[in-house]
Design a protein around this nucleic acid. Structure first.
Lengths: 229, 229
DNA sequence: GCAGACTAAATCGTATACGATTTCATACTT
DNA sequence: AAGTATGAAATCGTATACGATTTAGTCTGC
């Protein structure tokens, strides 16, 4: 995944990020500058820069004069991220809706069909990738790049939390496909911005709800969701 | 403003940021590593780190092997930021609403009264500070720190754009005070999350609309706001 | 006079070095 | 034995140095 192009700090960033997402560096793993630099064949300066960037994106936590550790899987963080995503994805969908064309819908529907098929072979990795592709089609016309950036940050954060593995809920993926189709129909019908936003929000919120129901032990998490997003 | 505590990279960050916001480094100003390091009495390494952080927060733009320049005042960026703020502030207000107490409302109302008074003396700096304080009171109970963080990012961005100066619209501040009072009444009445969110969104959006109306030349900006946020 | 090549200056990117801080094991005191 | 002082090892933070890249100015040939 890591490219050979760009500055060393960029390559270090990509390499470390890949190893975190690939599971080589698991949560709690201590990232030692000198060791990373040794492994990568770089000096510590660009590696340090890469780590500060990973810190800004919440892939690692950093403590002064102590160092960086790979960020852990935290149910509360997952909840925060999903709730935030429901809001920004809702807004992104509503803003993009008027600019989505017929061919866009067709492409999205094709991707959704592939998602449905990936379920039959039980391929969650592929499913997640297709899910990203589906929503990317809807968002690619988004007129506000800041909001799009927030969506991408959220997706990144979910990756960092390894949500697709720790957060698996049986049956939820199938519902997701159904909701996608409903969303496409809504877009085709030329529904108003409020309705579209509500539907897009609910789609993300439903995944969170499924998680909360499946892990009912998480009582306090429910309390955080006072207004029903 | 800059503190004497913390690492040199942190102090460099604070110092440079202050000079940008204070107007010493105006948009387009070229930030040269060696010169900044000389001025601050630090070496280039912590200064470089500070600049990368300022880049991540959009205070400066950065180009490889070329350097950093202070980010400019861009009406389109202002529009993006305001639109995004209307969304995240709306969500933050709705999420915080159930946790806001009577004393909170009283405090907020007092701040709003001071805002009203600051108008009589035409003190926009003070008005902006009080405006932040007003909304901070509403948000201080926000159960989702991620969303709160997005709000703060937006405020920072507005500062970076120096919006309070380039974006002044006569009469708008007075309307803002009126809208604040209406929002407080809505919160007191125990209104539903949707109504509160709509009102909070509209409050921010009204400021943007006032700007657009006042700078009617900005035709293309209107087009970006297709769904009426 | 102008386009392109060449050189020099400015500036960035990174390596290396070292002092500062934290951590951890050990010895010492009560 | 528990807690505290001590010192060494590990690690970070920053200074300095230098090669790499860009930029700007000059020169050349047309």
């Amino acid at each position: 995944m890591s490219s050979e192009t760009g500055s060393k700090s960029e390559r270090a960033y990509a390499a470390i990020k890949d190893k975190i997402l690939g599971g080589e560096y698991t949560p709690g793993y201590r990232l030692v500058l000198a060791k990373l630099a040794e492994d990568l064949g770089f000096s510590v300066v660009p590696v340090r820069e890469a780590i500060r960037r990973l810190e800004a994106e919440s892939f690692v936590t950093f403590e002064r004069n102590v160092g960086a550790t790979v960020a852990g899987i935290d149910p509360t963080e997952y909840l925060y991220t999903m709730q935030t995503l429901s809001i920004v994805e809702g807004a992104a969908t509503a803003l993009s809706a008027p600019l989505i064309t017929g061919p866009d819908i067709t492409r999205a529907r094709a991707v959704n069909a592939r998602m449905s098929r990936s379920l039959e072979h039980f391929d969650p990795i592929r499913f997640t990738a297709l899910n990203l592709e589906f929503h990317s089609i809807l968002f690619e016309n988004c007129p506000n790049p800041h909001i799009l950036d927030l969506v991408h940050r959220g997706w990144n954060r979910l990756q960092a939390l390894r949500s697709s593995t720790f957060n698996y809920v049986p049956g939820r993926a199938g519902e997701s496909v159904t909701e996608h189709e409903a969303l496409l129909k809504l877009l085709e019908s030329g529904a108003g911005a409020e309705d579209i936003e509500r539907a897009a929000r609910a789609h993300r919120a439903a995944t969170l709800d499924a998680y909360l129901a499946h892990n009912a032990s998480d009582q306090q998490a429910h309390a955080l969701l006072t207004p029903s997003y």
